[in-house]
């Protein structure tokens, strides 16, 4: 399953955030935290679950989430475990070339990373800064 949080007015001017979890509940809950803690200034989308709706991730759902959170400034993806990362990288490669270079997977914990990345993004930071700030959360 997948769904996006409600979009808002200032979209396109800030980096978008995509949350990809094996669990639809974790993805939705993480997005709720981002919305409550950061607000509506960033394009935000989430997806979780495999193509049958069980635990897992789906390239198709990730492609949809990237579309919903798309911003000309790019999209930062936060993932939980291995398959979420591999499937997100696959989804990035399947994007048109002009988009693929502006989408990154952050090596950061999903919940904290999403909140920090969205906080940076809401201040108008570049994709590179958004990613680096989220990745500072990861142990070296």
């Amino acid at each position: 399953m997948s769904a996006s949080a409600s979009p808002s007015a200032s979209l396109g001017s800030n980096v978008g955030i995509v949350i990809v979890s094996h669990s639809p509940d974790v993805a939705r809950g993480t997005a709720e935290m981002v919305r409550q803690m950061v607000g509506d200034e960033v394009p935000l989308a989430f997806c979780g679950g495999n193509p049958d709706g069980g635990l897992g991730t789906s390239v198709e759902a990730i492609l949809g989430a990237i579309d919903r959170a798309w911003s000309e400034k790019g999209v930062a993806i936060l993932v939980d475990l291995g398959g979420a990362e591999t499937n997100s990288e696959m989804a990035i490669e399947m994007q048109p070339e002009e988009r693929a270079g502006r989408i990154v997977v952050c090596n950061a914990p999903i919940v904290e990373g999403a909140v920090i990345a969205a906080t940076e993004a809401s201040g108008g930071a570049s994709l590179d800064i958004v990613r680096r700030t989220a990745e500072e959360l990861s142990p070296a």
Partner: peptide, 15 residues
Amino acid sequence: LVMKVGGASGPLYGT
């Protein structure tokens, strides 16, 4: 396989 497997094995076998 990429679209339907749903785990890391999808992109790996798909690739």
